[in-house]
Write a protein that binds this DNA or RNA. Structure first.
Lengths: 339, 339
DNA sequence: TTGTACGCGTTATCAT
DNA sequence: ATGATAACGCGTACAA
């Protein structure tokens, strides 16, 4: 019934009555072999249930047809769309995605990356700019093509595809300022080891500073990217520094948490408090029309990253940096501050 | 600066002044080699930035330290928690996750699985019971240890870890029946090629049939698992067969969509319509207390799957089927039908 | 404790 | 168009 050992190419070759080389070519370079023998080899392979041995192939060709990706926790849905796009588009080109994650810690990320390089990935996708120097050293020593997703590199040193978080954040904040808001609060993601969260927060500060407004320290709360944490952060802000009319959230999951608490307390959104932020997972639009967001196109980032990587592996030249459009979505009832 | 070719073990050996075998052992079986030489080899390896060549190792050891997982689209957040748990727990044991996805189509799944097997995965995680027979044949021919996540196998034939969807669905429906509901509608996921969606729907039917109630065909709508689709489904149901007081949703994302439309229309939940369903991504609890759900523990499924796979690879015996607890969450304001 | 030598399954180079 | 054979880089008998 179940044969204990898998057929190898030499089995196929022998059964088909050809040499190893011919069998290999018949399956890999069909045009190099006479139609008749090609078909015979193929039939035998199918009949025997032959499955190529990837490790052997990788050893011989020095390519694994595997791309590695190192993400922060992927149960953070922010990255799910990109992961899906990567896996899908790479698969369409015959590549498979080797996925590793870490808990927003540089050491974990370094280890994960090393594991992927040991697996012989042909390319590597990373998230953001904040990395252990040892990671970059590892990358350059190994010579694996890599790129950084989600952010753009101010130094222009690393290949990357992403959005300009700070600029987007400035635009959001200016929009709120234009509506007349002067009292701001921010629920941000943890900014340590996370340039996206940091840049988004800095953007708020810069926009406010541009109008001579300072963001008070008690009006800023950093927390984990989850709705419950967003809600707790909002409660904390309301407790220790109430009076803000505009709340900028690091992303829509945090906004959802804040919004939930607004509903529970009967706080009118956006009449009493206007909530704005980044829409990382297209949730805000579904939950409420009361938000102003920059939509971060995770799927698009993944698609572009895949396309760029495939192009590089094919020997094409690709631009060092690629910005994907991040649309500012201003919904109708976007809220002025109470008079 | 950047050395173009990576150091191999023979480079390490030569530089350290030992043989290839000793170098290999110094890094892999440290206790088999004298402390002094072991350290010397290690230092040289670190200095040279030596990274083992996975393909060569896999070829020699016949193990890739890689586990494959084939998921429906992972931007469906239902599977994000499991993916994260798998990647994390496997990494802790020195394994890496090779991820492939498909668009809920048997052919795509088969191709993805084949790709993973070709990559030489040491084990394979799949989702659900619905698979192309050719997939099972491929699995048994290849001899790769596999297991099916999310569901339990009625035939007891396949190793699996999951929940009893039908039974959970019956419990939810009975709860609504006990509250006095008699007019039911269902928003289900597509049941083709998806035993989870099918079993959940069947559970509603069975529970109703047990009380002599039939679920009208116009009161059932199958759609994609997304909030916008859930909302559209709800609108459709309201249009073509209004009058239901209980709505069972295939999962919380669909419920969220329906709920959004309730809010827009001013339909009181749960006074006018009680919404219940499955909580695949722990969203319902955050959005509203008006839902009754069975919480599907995706992360736990992933953790158990990882543990079982690791145990099998270590040669341990594991139970053929493993059910993870799926808690019925009855929230306070769970809703009686309007008098 | 260490070294030698072979094998893992494929691709690729050279002949034929 | 096909065949023989040498890599690919590492693990592991087996020998010393």
């Amino acid at each position: 019934m179940t044969r204990r050992t898998n057929p190898k190419l030499s089995d196929v070759a022998r059964t088909a009555g050809v040499s190893l080389a011919t069998a290999s070519r018949a399956l890999a370079d069909p045009e190099l072999v006479k139609a008749a023998t090609r078909e015979r080899v193929r039939e035998v392979a199918a009949m025997l249930g032959y499955v190529p041995h990837g490790a052997a192939r990788a050893l011989a060709t020095r390519r694994s047809r595997t791309i590695g990706a190192v993400f922060p926790p992927v149960d953070n849905p922010i990255f799910a769309a990109a992961t899906q796009a990567l896996a899908h588009d790479l698969a369409a080109a015959g590549y498979t995605l080797l996925l590793a994650t870490h808990e927003y810690d540089p050491a974990g990320e370094l280890g994960a990356t090393r594991a992927l390089i040991e697996r012989g990935v042909d390319g590597l996708e990373l998230v953001g700019m904040d990395h252990d120097p040892a990671l970059f050293e590892l990358l350059s020593r190994s010579g694996v093509p890599y790129e950084l997703m989600w952010s753009l590199d101010p130094s222009g040193h690393h290949p990357c595809v992403g959005i300009a978080h700070r600029f987007a954040s400035i635009r959001i904040t200016q929009h709120l300022l234009d509506l007349g808001h002067r009292e701001f609060a921010v629920i941000a993601g943890f900014t340590a080891h996370n340039d996206r969260a940091r840049e988004r927060l800095v953007g708020v500060r810069e926009a406010l500073a541009g109008r001579g407004i300072e963001l008070r320290a008690e009006r800023v709360f950093e927390t984990k990217f989850s709705a419950p944490h967003g809600r707790r952060a909002f409660i904390e802000l309301l407790g220790r520094a109430p009076g803000f009319t505009a709340l900028v959230c690091g992303n829509d999951v945090l906004a959802l948490g804040a919004l939930t608490e607004c509903v529970r307390r009967g706080i009118a959104v956006p009449q009493a408090i206007s909530i704005a932020g980044f829409d990382d997972i297209d949730m805000a639009a579904e939950v409420t029309p009361a938000l102003t967001t920059v939509r971060v196109p995770g799927a698009e980032i993944g698609r572009v990253a895949a396309a760029r990587m495939l192009a590089r592996l094919a020997g094409d030249e690709v631009p060092r940096q690629e910005e994907v459009p991040a649309e500012l979505v201003i919904r109708q009832s976007t809220g002025r501050p109470p008079a």
